[in-house]
């Protein structure tokens, strides 16, 4: 089993190794005619080039603000809507649910241009608000959390109601804590998706000072003059770190809450 797992890990993680290894190779070695994982001559030159060619710290901060903003916004709107759809006796809640879930099937090319024009009219191009607000809601999040909330034992909600708690208190004292695993899981996904997103920031952030990492990194790709593979991979290696750390921190938390949830049942 270990053998099989190790093999799977090796296959799956290989592209990331290749990225790192390209990041520490000098240009001639990048174009070495044979496959070679480790560099013959290790260099950090690509990292230096990546840092000087684009304002990478600025890109980093922008990516972080946008990813964090979108994650929080999506988590809040999803929790509220999923709570209403799953546990509150409101009329037509299945219709509401379908209303949200159907958005998952809408190709993003449809919403891109109208939203751009709107953001432009509101003078929000090149602002964090313009980058964040149009994506503050996600059908995917509502879908996932509604499924999770529905599997919550009804007795828990009942008990809270009988204690005289109102729906707001019930949500934050009972429903959210009981579903922190699911909420953490979708939040990670929101964060990672936003962190890696390309087309929307490409349209909205045209000033170099407002660009996010995936857009800013495109300066290394040039099909006319030649792609700078080394610096591109160096920048990419630096860019995955926050997402990986976010996952590392969150996954420990998820694991713990799974284990405690398992013990309780």
């Amino acid at each position: 089993m270990h053998g099989l797992l190790c093999l799977a890990c090796a296959l799956i993680v290989f592209p990331l190794f290749w990225m790192l290894s390209t990041a520490v190779k000098p240009p001639q070695e990048i174009f070495a005619g044979t496959f070679r994982l480790s560099p013959e001559r290790f260099t950090l030159e690509n990292f230096r080039a990546a840092m000087t060619a684009v304002p990478i710290v600025r890109l980093f901060v922008n990516s972080l603000v946008v990813a964090f903003g979108v994650t929080v916004a999506q988590a809040v709107t999803s929790i509220l809507a999923a709570y209403a759809c799953a546990l509150m006796p409101i009329p037509g809640r299945n219709v509401w649910f379908a209303f949200f879930v159907a958005t998952m099937m809408i190709p993003f090319q449809v919403t891109m241009i109208p939203n751009y024009l709107l953001v432009s009219k509101l003078e929000l191009l090149n602002t964090y608000t313009g980058l964040i607000v149009p994506q503050a809601v996600t059908g995917f999040g509502i879908f996932m959390l509604r499924q999770a909330f529905r599997s919550l034992p009804r007795s828990l909600v009942e008990a809270s109601v009988l204690d005289g708690a109102n729906s707001w208190q019930t949500l934050w004292r009972v429903v959210v804590p009981a579903n922190r695993t699911a909420i953490a899981a979708v939040s990670i996904l929101f964060f990672i998706n936003t962190w890696n997103q390309y087309l929307w920031p490409l349209l909205v952030a045209t000033d170099r000072s407002m660009k996010t990492l995936p857009v800013g990194m495109q300066e290394f790709v040039n099909l006319e003059g030649g792609t700078m593979w080394g610096p591109l991979m160096a920048a990419a290696s630096m860019a995955i770190l926050p997402a990986l750390v976010a996952y590392l921190l969150a996954q420990r938390y998820i694991l713990e809450s799974f284990v405690t949830a398992g013990l309780k049942e």
Partner: peptide, 10 residues
Amino acid sequence: FSPSVISMAI
């Protein structure tokens, strides 16, 4: 999990 954290473009 690591492939999930890299941007698709990269």
